[in-house]
Computed example of a mutant assay.
Amino acid sequence: MDLALWIAAGLLAAVALLGGITKTFVPRERLAAHRGGEWTGHVGAGFVRTLGVLEILAAAGLILPAVTGIAPVMVPVTAVCWILLMAGAMVTHGRLGQYGLVLLNLVYLALAAFIAWGRFVLEPFTG
């Protein structure tokens, strides 16, 4: 189970890092021109960039605390925060009729729920 949780955290961290880098460094107008990024045209650039930074921090929070042994409880806490972020993403994409993206966000949410449950209950980090 520990290996499955590490793999799940690694996959979710990669998703968060890629999304975070994109939202942080790609101009909002360019994001809005791509499928799935239309929502960025309805919000401020600062909001998009803030979400990007939060996603980069989530990527770090899913991996670094466990690797360094410094506050490893932050791994499942970060996963719970990701669940909240994905709930918001699902609402946003749902309002725009992007149901495929809602489903993708649901997959990410389920992965985060698995990590949170696994690290809080099944295989918590000790020490």
Rank of each mutant, 00 (worst) to 15 (best):
D2W: 02
D2K: 09
L5A: 14
L5V: 08
W6S: 14
W6L: 13
A8G: 15
A8I: 14
A9P: 06
L11P: 01
A13P: 01
V15F: 14
L18K: 12
I21A: 13
T22K: 05
K23W: 06
K23C: 09
P27F: 11
E29Q: 12
A32Q: 10
A33K: 07
A33G: 08
A33I: 08
H34C: 10
H34A: 15
H34Q: 15
R35P: 11
G41A: 10
H42G: 08
V43S: 08
A45N: 06
A45H: 06
G52T: 09
G52W: 04
G52C: 11
V53R: 03
L54F: 00
E55N: 03
L57N: 04
A58P: 04
A59L: 04
G61Q: 06
L62I: 00
L64C: 04
V67Q: 06
T68L: 06
T68Q: 07
T68S: 14
G69I: 11
M74S: 00
M74Y: 03
M74T: 04
P76G: 08
T78A: 12
A79G: 11
M86Q: 14
A87K: 07
A87L: 14
G88H: 13
G88R: 10
A89M: 02
M90R: 03
V91A: 14
V91M: 15
H93M: 05
G94S: 04
R95T: 06
L96P: 04
G97T: 01
Y99M: 12
Y99S: 12
G100E: 01
L101S: 05
L101R: 11
L101F: 09
L101K: 04
V102N: 01
L104I: 07
L109H: 01
F114K: 02
F114C: 09
F114N: 07
A116D: 15
G118R: 02
F120H: 05
F120D: 03
E123M: 12
P124R: 14
P124F: 10
P124W: 09
P124A: 09
F125K: 10
T126H: 15
G127T: 13
